[in-house]
Computed example of a mutant assay.
Amino acid sequence: MNSESVPPIPAVHTVGLSRTYGSMVALNSLDLTVNRGDLFGFIGSNGAGKTTTLRILATFLAPSAGQAKVLGHDVVKDADAVRHVIGYMPDFFGVYKDMEVTEYLDFFGACYKIPSAQREKTVNDVLELVGLSEKKGALIGALSRGMQQRLGLARVLIHDPQVLLLDEPASGLDPRARIEMMAILQELQRLGKTIIISSHILSELQTLCNRVAIIERGKLIYAGPVQGVRDQMSAGLVVWVKVASDNSKAIELLKGHSEVAEALAVDGRIKVTMVNHDVDHGFVADTLVRGGLKLTGLQEDELGLEEVFLRVTRGETQ
């Protein structure tokens, strides 16, 4: 059989993945594929099932039904192999505040059976990667919250995993620390890591991730490119128009066009909703100018991931 015809093994693949706690359904038949090299955003309200999914993928929690594989390894039948290829960073993790940074990482390097002669270089490499080289002799308790999060990421990287499962890694960080964390994740993706990051900071996922999934009440609502979620989940392309005078005439002209679903005045401007996302809105200016109106502004509405999320979820949790 020609090897080129064999599709590549995805980094993460789940089929019918479910988890129940008594009568409560935390995860409801999740079918999800994350490709190698993705920086994948996992979006959902608190209680939607994000942490449950990541804990199952990290082998800390057994599924009630269905199957999950990481790089082809079953998380139940081949859990030890999964642990060697993943790095899992929970939303809250313990640090030994009286230990020095290098002692902490050396300890975890020993846990992963990295030879002692190799551990010093490994520790130095991961500290450089997360920007903590200057803090190698510092006590962990003296580090800021942002630096402790970066140290947690360094611990995750100590055994050079191919897949990173990061549960709210920027939670509680100030804006500068969040930006620094996101820059580190982009560098890790550039180095070939596959990263799944759950977060409620949707505006950052919008620019950070190449693919996202939206989950609510344990069910997958959407999985695909960031642009795709905006196109699929919103009604149609929206443009905002401003004319020098006579909004009512402008609205009348626009409503007469077959590509316009709705036109109405909002705070001195005209909100024009197209019938779909594939419309070339260049006709708007042409229609208004031909109608004798002076166009003073035309802007396409950039629908953000946060607005899409609010539109497609009801904010329901378990």
Rank of each mutant, 00 (worst) to 15 (best):
162 Q>A: 14
68 A>Q: 10
7 P>K: 15
235 A>L: 09
228 G>A: 03
260 V>P: 00
80 D>M: 14
50 K>I: 10
225 P>V: 01
168 E>N: 02
196 I>N: 03
243 V>Q: 06
298 L>K: 11
318 Q>K: 15
305 L>C: 06
54 L>E: 09
18 S>N: 01
211 R>P: 07
318 Q>P: 12
223 A>Y: 03
169 P>E: 04
297 G>T: 03
283 F>W: 12
306 E>H: 11
63 P>L: 13
175 P>L: 10
177 A>Q: 13
125 D>W: 05
273 T>W: 01
272 V>Q: 09
218 G>M: 06
209 C>Q: 06
208 L>F: 04
107 F>P: 00
244 A>C: 04
238 V>S: 10
308 V>S: 07
179 I>N: 13
236 G>A: 07
309 F>S: 07
240 W>V: 11
111 C>D: 03
267 D>R: 10
206 Q>K: 04
20 T>A: 11
53 T>R: 08
96 Y>T: 01
301 D>S: 14
299 Q>K: 12
86 I>N: 05
189 Q>C: 08
194 T>I: 03
230 R>N: 05
158 I>M: 09
300 E>G: 06
123 V>Y: 02
198 S>L: 05
222 Y>S: 08
276 N>G: 14
96 Y>G: 01
159 H>K: 12
218 G>T: 03
90 P>V: 10
104 Y>I: 06
